[in-house]
Amino acid sequence: MGMPVQARAAAGVLAALALVTVLVPAFAQLDQSLVNLREAGLPPSLAHPFGTDEVGRDVLIRSIYGLRVSFLVGLVAALVSMVIGGLVGLAAGTLGGLADRLLMRVVDGFNALPHLLFGIFIVAMFAPGAVAVVVSVGVTHWTTAARIVRAEVLSLRARPFVEAAISGGSGRLRVARRHLLPHLLPHLLLATVLMVPHAIWHETALSFLGLGLPPHLASLGNMINDGQRSLLTGAWWSSLVPGLFILVPTLAVAVLAQHWRDRLNPRRRSELNL
C-alpha cells in the first residue's frame, strides 16, 4: 500500500523546510546583534519578502534560523525524553510485580504535575539556553514513553516466542535485549517523532516567557515575544511569520505520524474505517 497524498505532501513540506534550514544559513549569514534602525519595521517587499522586525532584521531569514534552532532543541529534548521513558517502561514491564507498581506510581506522580510550571521551575535552576530547555522537556515529558513501552512489553510477554525464551532459561535481561527491544524500536521512534513538535512548542513557550534561549538569539518563541510589541504599530508580519514556522511543521509531523501509526497497527486502521 502506497503512501497517501496527505502523507506525501507532509513529507514534502518537511523535506523543503529541512533543506531551507540547511541551505539558507550557508548563503545568508545573520548577525544576531545587528541593529539597523533605518530598515526597522519595514513591510513585506521584494528586498524583504516578510518584512523586517523592530530593529531592522529580516523576519524570513531570522525565522529560518529560529526554526533550525527549534528543530535541533526539540529533537534532542525528544530523544532524552524517549530514553528516560523507554528505560522506565522497559524495566516496569520486564520486572513486573512490586517494581512495576512502584515505577508506575512514580509515573503517575510526574503526570500529576503541571508540565509547564514544572518545566519553568527546572529552567529557573539553569542559565537561559538550549541545555535548560532540553533538560526541562526531558524531565517533564518522559512519562508518555514509559506508558507506551510498558504496554507493549506486557503485550509482548504474552507472545509464544517470549514465553518459549523464558521457558528455555533466558534471563530477563537477555529477553529484554534480544526479544523485546527489536519490537519496541518502531513504537519508540514513532513516540520520538510525535514528541518533537511538542518539544518545539515547549521551547517556544519558555522562550516567549523569557526563560528559554537568550533574547538576542534567533528563536521562534523570542521572535513572537518581540513581535507582539510590534502589533500595536501594525507590523503584523513580525509575529505571523514565526507563528507559521511553528504551525506548518507541527501539522506536517502530525500527518506523517498518523500514517506511521496506521502502518504499525493495520488492525486499528481497518477498525477505524468500518
Rank of each mutant, 00 (worst) to 15 (best):
R263C: 13
V131Y: 05
P25E: 01
G227C: 09
R147E: 01
L19N: 01
L87V: 15
L72N: 09
L37R: 15
M195W: 07
L232E: 07
S219H: 13
S239I: 13
L34C: 05
N36R: 13
V24F: 00
H202P: 00
E152I: 04
T204E: 05
I64T: 06
V88I: 14
V22I: 09
T144D: 10
P197L: 03
I120L: 13
S81G: 04
P182Y: 02
L34H: 09
L98H: 15
S45V: 03
A254W: 09
V241R: 00
R261A: 15
A130M: 09
N225K: 14
P242S: 06
W260F: 15
S45R: 03
G129F: 09
G109I: 12
V193L: 14
V35P: 10
R8G: 09
A10T: 05
F161A: 00
D100A: 09
L46Y: 08
L188D: 05
T144L: 11
F121A: 15
A191C: 11
H202R: 02
A257H: 11
P197F: 02
A112P: 02
L173E: 13
T140K: 02
F71G: 04
M104N: 07
T192F: 06
V196F: 08
A10L: 03
P114A: 00
R150A: 02
V193C: 13
R177P: 02
L113P: 06
L264Q: 11
A191W: 05
W236I: 06
L34P: 02
Q32G: 05
L244P: 06
A158Y: 13
F118C: 09
I120V: 14
V106M: 14
M104F: 08
A218C: 02
R105A: 05
R157M: 10
L272V: 12
A191I: 08
F121K: 09
G93R: 07
L23G: 04
H259C: 14
P4G: 06
S155Q: 14
G56R: 12
L180H: 07
Y65P: 00
P44H: 01
V253E: 10
W201Y: 13
R229M: 15
L180R: 01
N273A: 15
N111R: 13
A164S: 08
L75Y: 02
E271Q: 15
V135Y: 06
P25N: 03
P44M: 03
A16S: 01
S63W: 05
F208Q: 10
G93Y: 09
H216A: 15
R159G: 00
V55T: 14
L42S: 01
V83Q: 09
L232P: 01
Q258P: 07
R62I: 10
G212I: 11
I200D: 05
G41Y: 06
G97F: 11
A235I: 05
A151G: 12
T233L: 15
A127R: 15
A130P: 07
R159F: 00
A10H: 04
A205K: 06
R62M: 12
A11T: 11
S63D: 00
L272N: 10
T143V: 08
A218H: 02
L213A: 12
R267Y: 11
Q29S: 10
R62S: 14
A205Q: 05
Q258C: 08
G41I: 12
L194C: 08
L189S: 07
G2M: 13
S170F: 07
A78F: 01
L213R: 15
V133L: 07
A252N: 03
W237K: 08
H202V: 10
H183W: 10
G74M: 01
S219F: 11
G89F: 05
D31C: 04
A15M: 08
W236G: 01
